[in-house]
């Protein structure tokens, strides 16, 4: 059941004539935790909703286990996209009680694990008699997490699952995610803005920027290729002459350049013999370097 991949080919999406997703092709391989990161409005939720047939693509195709996802129940049965709940959404049934929402999930997800759902509810201390409209942002996130994990779907997608959760609950969520992943080998796609905390959990990372797929890569390999090189401006510029510089900060005569190496390349090759410091970047830092403001910080500001 868990050896199913999810792919999209040349997917584009237009809203009112404006292209919000542009020619995205990717394959979600089975048994992996993917992190989907991108700035606000980059198209993360749109991409996820197209992958799960909740939103029709303007162009392109999406398949799950080789079958088209659109209006295909057998393909959709392998997928759970637990969307962010919004209590003020005019279209959402915010008058539902949590238990009613979970009951609905139990009917529609074919592999629903009621006992696991009960354990998760107890873990988070959720009051299932409360109406969705009365829940805090953190509790809404907990409900979406319960649905996602208890769905036991081969491909489980969580959109901003930790939004509004306190640090203890966030830690608990990541623990639960890893426990469940270890136990079942399911595929998870987690979109988040809190990258630093989740970086260790993501085996692979998908970066979307302005509707385009920037990369889909093994997290450890990706992080190992990004460095910050600091020193005198001329020295940094000389060292970076043959490197891909994503971003740079200038402070007085000092400069820090955020660079990307080619696979197999070594940073020593560029800084040896120069008075420069080089250190690796965290996933968050490299994301900012790749997708941050095009104008280098410190220049023209």
């Amino acid at each position: 059941m868990n050896n199913i991949n999810l792919s999209c080919e040349h997917v584009s999406k237009d809203y009112s004539g404006k292209r919000v997703l542009n020619d995205i092709s990717l394959t979600i391989e089975p048994g992996c935790i993917y992190g989907l990161i991108g700035r606000n409005g980059a198209g993360k939720t749109t991409l996820l909703s197209i992958l799960t047939a909740q939103n029709p693509a303007t162009l392109g195709t999406v398949t799950c286990g080789g079958e088209p996802v659109w209006e295909n129940q057998s393909a959709l049965d392998h997928i759970c996209f637990s969307r962010e709940l919004n209590p003020t959404n005019a279209y959402g049934n915010s008058s539902y009680k949590v238990k009613e929402y979970l009951r609905m999930a139990s009917v529609y997800y074919p592999h629903w694990d009621a006992a696991y759902a009960k354990r998760l509810i107890d873990t988070f201390g959720l009051d299932t008699k409360k109406r969705i409209a009365k829940l805090s942002k953190g509790m809404l996130s907990m409900v979406t997490i319960v649905v996602a994990l208890a769905s036991r779907a081969a491909i489980t997608i969580l959109d901003e699952p930790v939004a509004g959760l306190d640090v203890v609950s966030r830690e608990r969520f990541y623990q639960l995610l890893i426990e469940d992943y270890t136990e079942t080998g399911r595929t998870f796609i987690v979109s988040t803005h809190i990258i630093e905390e989740a970086a260790n959990v993501f085996e692979k990372v998908i970066i979307i920027d302005q509707g385009r797929l920037r990369l889909i890569e093994d997290t450890a390999e990706l992080v190992s290729r990004f460095f910050a090189i600091s020193g005198k401006e001329e020295e940094v510029d000389a060292a970076c002459a043959n490197l891909k510089v994503h971003h740079s900060d200038i402070m007085g005569r000092s400069k820090t350049a955020y660079v990307e190496l080619q696979p197999g390349d070594s940073i020593k090759h560029y800084i040896d013999g120069r008075e420069l410091d080089a250190h690796g970047l965290s996933l968050q830092k490299l994301f900012v370097a790749m997708c941050g403001d095009e104008t280098p910080m410190g220049e023209g500001k």
Partner: peptide, 9 residues
Amino acid sequence: PYLLSMGST
């Protein structure tokens, strides 16, 4: 919308 978001066609 809820039924569709839970994978119904």
